[in-house]
Design a protein around this nucleic acid. Structure first.
Lengths: 196, 196
DNA sequence: CGGATGACAGATATTGAAATCTGTCATCCG
DNA sequence: CGGATGACAGATTTCAATATCTGTCATCCG
């Protein structure tokens, strides 16, 4: 055979490339097939619909962020510091994605807008990571244990309170001057709120 | 004369009505003039451009919220309680607007998207109100005075941390179950963060 | 036989000609 | 004379015809 076997992974790679080039409204399944040198029928063998293909490629994109952050939840060290670093790393990763490849970032922002289920799952992942760090902090005694419910509730609160610094809806603000100070203030406020 | 004199206020009233009916993309200056029974040239006597008309009507809409909240900043009583009430009142007002007249709310959400200057001014208004309450709290000794800078910085942090519960970008989430609990968690986190 | 193909029907998007809108201004009216 | 009008030019939007795309499936090929 002249090329590698047609796998879901290769299709997703090509899909991302086509999305980057044409954007979410003009990228078609035919384009993806053309990029791979196959007929569009072959793509439909691996993904039932165009929507399923888009979901898979979006999932993959979101998972890359989860995987980047996962190590920070199992590290040793003071929970407070790890939480702060987790938040900074998330913001830095998002901002880099938005800044380095604005077309692709805008594309995925549009795609996620049509996929609340995928996004909710991703948020659950991230909130779960936060909850683990907060739980460590409670065990260490540095984070409060009454007053704010389960770690998962506190984690949701932290995630929502810092939304401005990771939610794509705010991407335009991430390059404004003063955003670093704003982020530092919110982190300070949130960490103070968690402290015992 | 068969009708009242043509004033900016009457034009803004008609503009809002036309926006409600036709939405931001289809509402035209001609429609506004028609609603008032005048020629569109007369509208241009009071507003230099369509953009200026839209800015004015949006400003008016945002100001209604500022005016609703202003009384809470001058009331007497514990600052902590007033801050909590201010946040709840803001959320309740936004949610009511979004729920009672979704068309108009969606319309204004689109309009504000093209008017960062007007929006920034509105945010400055609201942050200023928050700063006044926080300053009262510091004077009372219930809010922390070091560690988070000026009241205006703390106020910005509080405003951003609660964005999910007043930013129109999140309007779709305001009717989800559990939003009340999420809001209560974030308020608790933020208030704990401010406490001395 | 398992996987790839491309013709096809119905749904969606593109295009360019016609209609409407924005903003100006000479003219009109009370 | 101050304010309202509507004709007008250029910009923008609409609409319907045309082209492309999605998803299926009978057929083909190694």
């Amino acid at each position: 055979m002249v090329s590698e076997a047609l796998t879901p992974e290769r299709i997703l790679e090509a899909t991302e490339e086509v999305l980057r080039r044409y954007g979410p409204s003009k990228a078609t399944v035919v384009d993806v097939a053309r990029a791979l040198g196959v007929s569009h029928g072959s793509v439909y063998r691996h993904f039932r619909t165009k929507a399923a293909l888009r979901e898979a490629v979006t999932q993959r994109w979101l998972d890359r962020t989860s995987e980047l952050l996962a190590p920070l939840t199992t590290e040793r060290g003071p929970a407070e510091e790890r939480l702060d670093r987790w938040l900074k790393t998330l913001f830095e990763a998002k901002r880099r994605k938005a800044g380095d490849d604005p077309e692709l970032f805008a594309t995925y922002t549009v795609l996620t807008g049509d996929m609340s289920a995928v996004v909710d799952g991703h948020i659950d992942d991230l909130v779960g990571q936060l909850a683990r760090i907060i739980e460590d902090g409670r065990r260490e005694g540095v984070f409060v244990s009454e007053s704010i419910g389960f770690p998962s509730e506190a984690a949701r609160a932290v995630f929502h309170a810092t939304g401005r610094f990771h939610d794509p809806a705010y991407a335009a603000e991430w390059s404004r001057p003063g955003i670093e100070d704003d982020f530092a203030s919110v982190r300070e406020l949130v960490l103070r709120g968690l402290r015992a």
